[in-house]
Every structure is written in C-alpha cells, then in structure tokens.
Simulated scan of single mutants.
Amino acid sequence: MAIQLKSVRVERWAVAGSFVIARGAKTFVDVVVAEVLGADGAVGRGEGTPVYYLGEDAAGCRDEILRAAAHIADLDAAAARAVVQDIMAPGAARNALDCALWDLEAQQRGLRLWQLAGCDGAPTARDTAFTISLGSPGAMAEQAASAAADGYRLLKLKLTGEDDRLRVAGVRKGAPDARLIVDANESWGQLDILGEAEALADLGVEMIEQPVPVGADALLDPIYAPVPFVADESCHTAADVARIGAFYDGVNIKLDKAGGLTEALRLADAADAAGLAIMVGCMLSTSLAIAPAFVLAQRARWVDLDGPALLARDREGGFEFRDGRVGPRVG
C-alpha cells in the first residue's frame, strides 16, 4: 500500500527537575515526531531525540525527514524502510521515520510490532535502570535513596572522571541494596582505568559504560577488569562491532544512534555473533520512542529505558514505570 509523509514536527517536553550529565544540564528535551500515512488511512508514528554529541538538533532532524519524503512516496512501508536505510545517515531523523514505517507496516499487516520484528513472544515488563544525575556525592545519595524508595532496583550513575569513587560510595550509602551500573561518559582516558574499575567493583558496580573517549578504545586492550566495559558512543551501528568488539564486553544499543529499529536489530545480531552482551538504552524521550526499543530490550542483559520517567509528564497511555520495571500500561 502506497504511503506518504503525513506530518513531521518538533515537540518540547519538560524534564522533571533537571537532568545533569558531564556535558551539562537539561530542563527540557526537543524531539522530532514523524507520521506516515498509508493508502488505507492507517497512520504510523515514530519519535527521535537528537544525538547532541553528534551535533544534531530537532529542527535539522525535521528538515532531514522532509527531504527524505519524496524518496519514499508511493512505496509500501517495507520498501520505504529499505530506501530510508540508503538515503539517510544513522541518527534521530532516520530513527523517527524508520520507526513510523515499522508502526505503519505492523498495523497494515494486522501484527503487533514484536511479531513483525520476528520476536518469539510478546514483550514482558523488564527491570529498568533509573538514572542518577550528576551531582555531589551527598546529592546523588539522596537521589538514589528516593529512587530506591520508588522501587528501582537498578541505578545508573553519571560520572565525570573526578571524584567518581566518592559519588559511587554516596549512592551505595543511599541505596545499599540496589544494583549499580555507571556511565563514565568517555572521561577515564587519563586515569588508571584498571584501578578505577577495581575500586568501583568493590562498591558493587556491575558494569562500566564508555570509560574512554571515542577513538581511544584501544586503551582498554590490555585491561582485564573485574566488571564488563560496554561501548556507547563508540558503537552506533552493526558496522562498528568489528572495530570495537575486541575492546569491550558489550554494546549499548540506542535507536537514535543506530537510526531506527531496523539497524538496531542488525546491531543486536552482530553483538550476539561477536559474543558481546547487549544493553538497550535511550535518550530523554516519551513513550512513543520507547515502544520499539522495548521490543529490542527483551534481548538485553541491561535495560535502561527510563527516558519517560525523567520527564515532568509523558504521552497519554505511555509505558508504566512501577516497582522499578517498565512495561506496557494495563487497562
């Protein structure tokens, strides 16, 4: 059934309080939403959050989708997805359009998204990490205690390469029973990486995300750390696995980096083939962006899909975050 781009728009969503990482604080997030219309009247929707460290912005993503529209007009959804992979680079724009086309095709074929994606069974609720924003050790301890009181059993800490051990110790004090993973955000390039990893392992950290800068991944080559290293900024698509696979134990798959569910599934297959663990993460986003990622999250060792939980409000009928788990809203 022939399709056309129905609309593409930029939406602004307020963050609950502020979201602080090493690169700065955010009080809102701008996302791009694409809608594609089938000849049968069905409408598929997808959402992308610009990848800020790649220089993307929402207006630019919107314009990229508008430019792509003429290339997919009058195709069916599956053919349009194939074209989109060729004419658009990985990133938030392609993610929004790719996921809209998945949504449309599933509706037109009378399937659920997980069925169309070839999953063995319906997705079920998963434990999700809750992100502890960067702050003083005391402030992060308070955030951790609040998150644990809300039922989160897996906490993800943002680090900077300075006073990381103190921050992790503070969070451990605030949430003594929580599982901890950390995101070093490329900040350990000048540190004793093994020493840092061993110290955090002693505090119960079970995974370290992106410890070194992009392009410096070989710094991890001689290190046999007590906890796994997971590539984030260093791994966007399936093609990256061959380059970084020798240095990491896992990959963090984000649909905005990969450029949609199509490439994210390829990346997951490549990670499996290379023996790398899978983490599925997200940017700040609404539940519209989480829906396709949630399908992929069924394959993940670590799930970090708390984007909507960090907003002041989510879309109506969005995912439910209860007792530290993310899942479709029931009723």
Rank of each mutant, 00 (worst) to 15 (best):
V10N: 12
E11W: 15
A16W: 15
G17V: 05
S18A: 11
S18I: 07
V20W: 14
V20G: 02
G24M: 04
V29I: 14
V29Q: 12
V33L: 08
E35A: 10
V36D: 15
G38Q: 13
G38D: 13
A39N: 04
D40V: 11
D40C: 14
V43D: 13
G46V: 01
G46S: 01
L54P: 00
E56D: 08
C61D: 15
R62V: 09
L66D: 15
R67E: 14
R81W: 13
D86I: 01
M88Y: 12
G91T: 10
A92Q: 05
A92Y: 03
R94V: 05
D98M: 09
L104I: 12
Q108L: 14
C119G: 07
A122R: 14
A122C: 07
A125D: 09
R126T: 09
D127S: 09
T128R: 06
A139V: 03
A145Y: 02
A147W: 04
A147E: 03
A147N: 05
R153I: 05
L159K: 02
G161A: 04
G161W: 00
D164P: 00
L166R: 13
R167Y: 04
A169L: 04
A169M: 01
G170Y: 00
A175S: 12
A175L: 03
D177H: 15
D177W: 14
A178Q: 05
I181R: 15
V182R: 04
V182F: 02
L191C: 13
I193A: 02
E196M: 11
E196D: 05
D202P: 02
M207H: 12
V212M: 08
G215I: 05
D217F: 01
P222V: 02
I223W: 12
A225W: 00
P226N: 04
F229C: 02
A231L: 09
V241Y: 00
G250I: 00
G250W: 06
V251D: 06
V251W: 02
L255E: 11
D256F: 09
E263V: 05
L265E: 02
L265G: 04
D269A: 14
A270L: 05
A270T: 10
D272N: 04
A273N: 01
A273D: 13
A277M: 10
A277L: 06
V280S: 01
V280W: 03
G281F: 05
C282M: 07
S285I: 11
A300W: 07
A300E: 07
R301P: 04
R301V: 05
L305F: 07
L305M: 10
P308W: 06
R313V: 11
E316I: 06
F319N: 03
R322P: 03
R329D: 04
V330S: 06
G331Q: 04
